[in-house]
Design a protein around this nucleic acid. Structure first.
Lengths: 89, 89
DNA sequence: TGTATATTTAGATATTTGTCTAACTATCTA
DNA sequence: TAGATAGTTAGACAAATATCTAAATATACA
């Protein structure tokens, strides 16, 4: 899937917590529960950030039982930034 | 000069009006007065956006008489996005 | 079925943001 | 010096954002 909203993508990237989440997801998929052990943030706040990253198409979610594994959508991630850079050539 | 605040840079890029301003400045330097002929926005609003882009180090300002010429800081612009992409390799 | 676990949703609140009008500062020029 | 022009600053306001606690939903399992 492709870029939907550039503003949303940059907005998603403008928050340090969300960039930290993306950096964690570079290595492997992770559940919100695991993430809360890394960031000093409440579960609802984390959930909010994940929803925003998902709406920006920067991450994907896969439910397995009660858990939800979130993964970096690397393709779209690079697409967004590179497409934007193209516009400035 | 280099990146100062990644959050600020992405925040600056998250607004459509500010991205439009940057795109205009790709071609040439421009004064706020000229810009208002392109965007349906008041001078104070434009001034606000320019201040934000400047604080993010994405543009520079050169005063000549009563006019202020704003220019794209292309170097820092690419630096910000590419450095960020590096972190996701 | 009942309880524990994983996550989201709802609702509240303080902060930030984008916009406007009005007023101010600086510079030019007749 | 007076008036016009270019731009910013001040102040107000509505909308969006990030955060929290409490409640709801969904799944697992004894």
């Amino acid at each position: 899937m492709a870029i939907r909203d550039v503003s949303l993508a940059f907005k998603a990237l403008s928050d340090p917590t969300r960039r930290d989440i993306l950096k964690k997801l570079r290595n492997r998929s992770m559940t919100p529960g695991e993430m809360t052990t890394f960031f000093p943030i409440s579960k609802p706040s984390l959930s909010h950030h994940l929803a925003l990253l998902k709406s920006a198409n920067l991450i994907t979610a896969d439910k397995e039982g009660q858990k939800i594994y979130y993964s970096l959508n690397a393709t779209v991630f690079y697409e967004i930034l590179n497409n934007f850079l193209e516009g400035f050539k």
